[in-house]
Amino acid sequence: MRLTNRDWNALGLSALLIAVVCCLPFLTQGYWLSIGVTIAMYAVLATSWALFSGPTHYISLATAAFFGVGTYTVGYGIEVLPYWTLLPIAGVLGAVLAALAGLATLRLSGVYFVIFTLGLAEFIRQIITWVQNLTGQRGIYVLTSITESHIYWQLVGLAALVFLTGWLIGRSRLGFALRIIGDDEEVARHSGIHTARAKVLLFMVPGAAAAIAGAILAPRYVYIEPMLAFTPMLSFQVVIMALLGGTGRLWGPLVGVIPFTIIWEAISASFPNQTTLLLGVSFLVIVYLLPRGFVGLIEDTRHRGREAQA
């Protein structure tokens, strides 16, 4: 499809925003840069999560599994291969894992999918722990010269890539097929859409993105152990941020990621024991007060504003 003027404007504006965002390490180091890294990471995870879960309504809790696979790809690979080759390898591994998970469950009901993805991270974690116990190893050191600023730029770059992918999918036949599936899967099938294939293809996007994010962050951890790489909390936080922002728009999750990360950091700094409670309350707020997230709120307000004018 040809690009309209509006498309060019949106692309130009996005490029400008990314350039501005990339300046952060020049302005500040330390606390705000580390918040920046966290926000960029969740922007990648939540946006790619929403690309799949938004149209399909499947709630994936596999983020931690993909992320951990990426982290361990770097952990095991850094001794053998140059760092830059490990990122695409992590992406491929994440996508393959997602495809396998998708083939096993996407034909079944949503509940099965949730359980399957929740168990996946735990499963891989137990296997890695077991293998490490057998070999008498506890964790792995990832020692590189990569700095916090490098990690930040890589994550921003990955986020840009995820946005671009989402935008391209939205304009493609796959994107159109997914909107139809989201509306009525029966009609989709009878219109000639291979629904299972479309869903599996799409699930590979968050799989690859989360694995690459995990790989990028591995040098930051320095010492990797299974509990850290596969923490289930990560999956839940991503779900909350994406839903809080709203999955109806490509930029929706980002609107959830920024405030939630800042609040989360503040609360876990002053009340470290209350983060679980906060997570629970956020889920309830989303279901009962913000079913379409901030995006829904913004659109409703705009809609009302337009009606008031008319």
Partner: peptide, 10 residues
């Protein structure tokens, strides 16, 4: 369009 894009003749 759903019919036109994915159907017999695409």
């Amino acid at each position: 369009m759903a019919g036109a894009v994915f159907g017999h003749r695409r």
